[in-house]
Design a protein around this nucleic acid. Structure first.
Lengths: 203, 203
DNA sequence: TATTGTGAAACATTTCACAGCC
DNA sequence: GGCTGTGAAATGTTTCACAATA
């Protein structure tokens, strides 16, 4: 397959999520125009993106919702379940531990980590929790591919290093500092403050 | 000022945040190259972005960290404090209520809202909490400009409508569905599942 | 000598127009 | 008739090369 731009991948991921909503409403077919409206983009871009991926719709009817979901899932490798671990079990970390939407969409949180024994003992959750000292072992044993960082900023880089050394392939960073990761590790920031800044700048 | 692309605004917001870290380390000047490294972009892009904004550095020394922070803040209107309210006081919502980083960066959470009286009574936080029935009044009284949505997906669109009707100018949506807002309201999604999907697609 | 600032070149993305199709 | 699929045009963004500068 041709290599896709980040923008395209992001849009396709959004479409993928949007199709869930359509399925719940029992909508069988959807046109590029309606998809575009639901996503805040243009019909041209939707058609181009889908055609770039090699998936195809029907003249006069649009795209088959269920089929499209399957096809996009395959093309983006979203069909296989992915295991994730969360490091940092403060308020945000524990909120993420029990975030049900992950499960629905093929992501499974299989472990939580914190450096405070105190916190580990007090936490009430279904997910197994461990000391960060056991991180390397647990990541290997449980085949964790994705690391989610929810520690205070001072500890973020350290945690990222530990996660990468343990062998995770992707990192989602909720801490407010950018961390650096080795070549080949997929990295994404979720900086809340930055999000508010972006909005403020557009006001 | 020329109008800036979303990409430029996003990068400038990141630079703005990065300068905080530099100030903490007491670094006085920084070159476009170093900035680029810290941010994962190129020195050309940094220089172009800054020059597009009309801010300027010094030959042989780079940019004055403190001055640059001030200038970027002015250009992006990030100097004035912005008041925000959070709707939905589940685990995520309450985590956001007490997210200290917001305060540091000029955003102030001045109210929380939930529809469950039960939850409102049980919550322990410094921030005043209200029933969503009082949302319109409180948004007006406290001059809330930014609405943060942290409710389950079924309620998200409804909450967005209420917030917009109450007069907020920007919305940050943590729920996993995209909501639609009237023309003129700045809107940004923070979809955790989508973030994981994006990472999985890049693996 | 090291770094900015910027016009121009290279590249990437989005939009468009329309053929093809059911 | 209404929708997709796509090559070509239009637009936007990034990279580059180099003059200017302290």
């Amino acid at each position: 397959m041709k290599d896709l731009s980040n923008n395209t991948i992001e849009r396709i991921c959004k479409i993928f999520g949007y199709l869930d909503a359509l399925q719940k409403k029992e909508i069988g077919f959807i046109s590029s125009r309606e998809l575009a409206q639901g996503l805040g983009t243009t019909e041209y871009t939707v058609r181009k993106d889908l055609s770039t991926l090699g998936v195809t719709g029907h003249t006069r009817r649009g795209y088959d919702v269920k089929l499209l979901k399957t096809q996009l899932g395959e093309k983006l490798h979203l069909t296989q379940k992915r295991k994730a671990g969360i490091v940092g079990l403060g308020r945000l970390g524990t909120a993420l531990l029990d975030y049900e939407k992950f499960k629905v969409d093929g992501f499974e949180i299989v472990a939580g980590f914190d450096c405070s024994i105190n916190k580990l003992e007090r936490i009430r959750t279904q997910i197994d929790v461990f000391s960060v000292n056991d991180l390397k072992r647990v990541v290997a044993e449980r085949h964790i591919e994705l690391g989610i960082i929810a520690v205070p900023e001072a500890a973020a880089q350290n945690v990222a290093d530990t996660l990468c050394a343990a062998g995770v392939k992707g990192i989602l960073n909720f801490s407010p500092v950018k961390v650096t990761v080795p070549e080949g590790i997929v990295y994404l920031d979720m900086d809340f403050t930055n999000a508010l800044r972006f909005i403020a700048a557009r006001l």
